[in-house]
């Protein structure tokens, strides 16, 4: 099962890279802290930065320093509805190479449950992005994810695990709509009870009627759940 997933994912990336369309690859470190405030309320902060190191379009030149594509700062308030469901309201501040920040509001409903020894998650999210110039962007997203323990039937301290997810994003803005798919495959390690480190690949493909732009990102995530 695990080997099949890796093969499918590798084949997907190779196949999509080879085709004639805008393609970028890079590195995306992210850092997340979650803090439980009460039995039902928690706060989450996430910082994600994207750096391009290859682009078949002329995108590298202006991406400085560190070929920076952008950095996002996210803040969420989360409320536990039941043992399985949570709602979250969030705000994202993004800085792009053009120096003009954008603001995003995020609403999210998430589910997490168990499937044998695996944890599975469903996430439905809506977001609205407002730019300092230009029309606003509205997106509706659904993500399915799995956490698979690699040693034993649950992830304990000192053990490795896999995280894989697939997300479909529908975007609407004045001038048209588009669809995006994001596939993520990461290997995680739990050095301490409340810390996870995850390394892997995030493949994103976007287009209206066909894939017009895609990117492969090597992701490194550090997650603190306090």
């Amino acid at each position: 099962m695990r080997v099949i997933l890796i093969i499918i994912y590798s084949a997907l990336i190779f196949n999509l890279q080879a085709q004639d369309r805008a393609y970028h690859s890079g590195f995306a470190p992210e850092f997340t802290i979650n803090k439980k405030i009460s039995k039902k309320v928690s706060l989450t902060t996430k910082v994600e930065s994207i750096h391009y190191y290859y682009s078949n379009e002329d995108r590298i030149g202006y991406l400085t320093p560190w070929n920076h594509k952008g950095i996002d700062f996210q803040f969420f308030g989360n409320y536990k509805l039941s043992p399985f469901y949570r709602i979250s309201l969030g705000y994202q501040l993004s800085y792009n190479p053009d120096g003009k920040p954008s603001n995003r509001l995020i609403e999210q409903l998430s589910y997490s449950g168990k499937l044998g020894s695996m944890k599975l998650g469903h996430r439905v999210r809506a977001d609205q992005t407002f730019y300092s110039s230009g029309p606003a962007k509205f997106r509706f997203r659904y993500r399915f994810s799995l956490q698979i323990p690699l040693q034993g039937s649950s992830v304990d301290v000192g053990e490795f695990f896999l995280i894989t997810s697939d997300e479909l994003i529908l975007t609407a803005k004045s001038g048209g709509s588009s669809i995006e798919n994001r596939a993520l495959f990461q290997v995680g390690y739990k050095p301490f009870e409340k810390i996870d480190i995850q390394v892997g690949f995030d493949y994103r493909a976007e287009g209206a009627n066909r894939i017009e732009e895609s990117e492969s990102l090597m992701k490194i995530a550090l997650i603190f759940d306090l």
Partner: peptide, 8 residues
Amino acid sequence: EANINLDF
């Protein structure tokens, strides 16, 4: 507990 890596 919430699964942060599945939720965010």
